[in-house]
Design a protein around this nucleic acid. Structure first.
Lengths: 195, 195, 195, 195
DNA sequence: AATGAATGAGCTTTCATTCAT
DNA sequence: GATGAATGAAAGCTCATTCAT
């Protein structure tokens, strides 16, 4: 099996195990699940932390790509927003492990904390930009209150996503709608409009 | 030192260490910080998990007590809401460790997952009740959408709190105001109004 | 409670716990069972080993006293033998814990090994003496073969006793009879007769 | 060193240490004696108990193999008996540790209790079968008294063996002869003859 | 006379990591 | 390129034992 594929299948295994938390994961288990010997893990990723970072990277990129791919700049802002949100929840549904790794352990291992923080910032940015279109605010330099509210919105989404994972009987569209409701309601604050 | 006091000072130390995550914490470190020998930890709390649960209990109760104490039922709903939110952020400011233990590790150890989930539910309830007063909705049996939105609101608060921890220059009142803005905006959905 | 009584009730508790093996026993458990604080154990018996020795002493003496008391020198040898054997099994039935402590752990803690070995020797002696009467051999200085066979007989008795503990439906008289059969059959060798 | 060999040398070391009793043995000491690091013990045997069971298994099988190999069915019964007994004592002489592990600790750790009990039963069976030939009894279904007496005989052998270990100046043949004397004397009871 | 409080030292077990082949 | 074999370090936990009251 060529290296590229090996790496991917190792990352897949790593996701399953890391989903239970960084410290609760063991290299042994990952190796076993990936059907590889442990030294391979180190040959390819250097260390446990390296493997974790690689997984977070791959998964974060996947999420951002999906958000980016879900919408075209020409769409109406609310259409873009809805498409993005749907994609967001679709990602959660499909990459449950990845989702839990990315957002389940806020106090995780040092270097990754930053990584995840950056990822959240990007998502907050995406929301801010789309919202700017949706609410008609333009060119406002986002100040602290915008940042804060954007984070609040992201947090609402995360929390909603976790709630959804425990209520799988609810339709994805439904959850997305509720989320949109919250976002649009909170939007004026988020975009700094009206201050 | 009598048992009661020792237990409290052990719990204080435990909080500092658990703040970095359950698995990352070691009994040795907690004992060292509390200036006690390890066997005392086990004599008083039985196990690492027991100590964790005890800490979560104490801290969760503290938070709920504060929320309850911050408001009197006679207050105007928005006054109550604002008082509660202020108290919430005051708690975060004061019990930073406790906050991170309670809300930092979504994928924590088995028995505590439930404990923390219950605590979150209680807070969501509190918000729902106060909101019901604030928006004039009355007697609505909270259905799924209300639950979901309440969770979203709680998540927004958590996320905002974490953001605030990294922007200590912002005033507490300020953050509370932003949060109130989000809540009141999202309230109609949370209280099921208008459906 | 006067010291004498305390000591006895501690020894009773010790027996129950030591029955599972010296190393498997914990001072904590003994103290709990005796409803005394741990320091009392040390005040009265000095150490875990001291407590163990005290228990072995008391129980060994009890067994020897019973053997001695069960028979009068004037009895017919076979009557004495049978009475002694019955008493032996009665002891086992009544002091199950003590029996297991005395004979269950051949590789026990240093000082006690000797103690128990001496006790066994005494019992072997008793058997030899009674047998000497029973088979008519007199005044033979017991040589190695007699010693050896006496030990074999004691071992047969222990093994039989343990077997009996797992077959409580069998009557004590029955087991005693079987044991007598083995002893009388083996007696000529034990008393050195016929060599 | 290949795994097979390592396992054997670990088991050898384990025997020496377990000879002092299961609870008195420490994995550290076994590892040190086997000149291996502790993790190897766990990699190969899973746990302390696993290692113990493995040792009991190997040693028990060895003993049974020897008993089986020492005699051919065509031999005269008393010849078979004598050969078996000689082999039994040879085993004890050679595998002193193993002997003490197998028969020294009657109250040992849970799972092994059964294992050792089964082993004893097998030996008792072997004796019963050979005795049946030696005394001419045939086809008797062994009843309780036979079982009991067979156990008594095994116990006599164990006790004799332990006595012998402390009197190494006695020849093996000598001890075997004494034991044979006891067995043959007790045999009628053991084979149920004459009832 | 009696105990709650306390501990040093040891236990079994697991983990991330590396070497020799 | 890939692995079986191996380990240092540290984890959670328990124990016999003592001291201050």
């Amino acid at each position: 099996m060529p290296r590229r594929d090996r790496e991917q299948s190792i990352l897949d295994a790593a996701g399953q195990v890391f989903a239970r938390g960084y410290h609760a994961a063991s290299m042994d288990e990952i190796a076993g699940l990936a059907d590889v010997s442990k030294p391979m893990l180190y040959a390819y990723f250097g260390s446990k932390e390296g493997l974790y970072v690689a997984y977070v990277d791959r998964t974060g990129r996947e999420l951002l790509d999906r958000l980016a791919g879900a919408t075209t700049p020409d769409d109406q802002p609310t259409v873009r927003l809805r498409a993005g949100i749907l994609e967001f929840f679709a990602f959660i549904e499909q990459y449950r492990d990845g989702w839990q790794v990315l957002f389940g352990e806020l106090t995780s291992i040092g270097p990754v904390v930053e990584e995840v923080a950056v990822l959240r910032g990007r998502i907050a940015d995406w929301i801010t930009v789309v919202l700017a279109g949706a609410t008609g605010a333009q060119g406002n330099v986002p100040d602290l209150s915008v940042q804060a509210t954007a984070h609040a919105i992201v947090g609402a989404g995360e929390s909603l996503a976790n709630w959804w994972l425990e209520h799988p009987e609810v339709q994805r569209d439904q959850v997305a709608d509720w989320y949109m409701g919250v976002i649009l309601a909170a939007a004026p604050a988020a975009t700094g409009e009206g201050r």
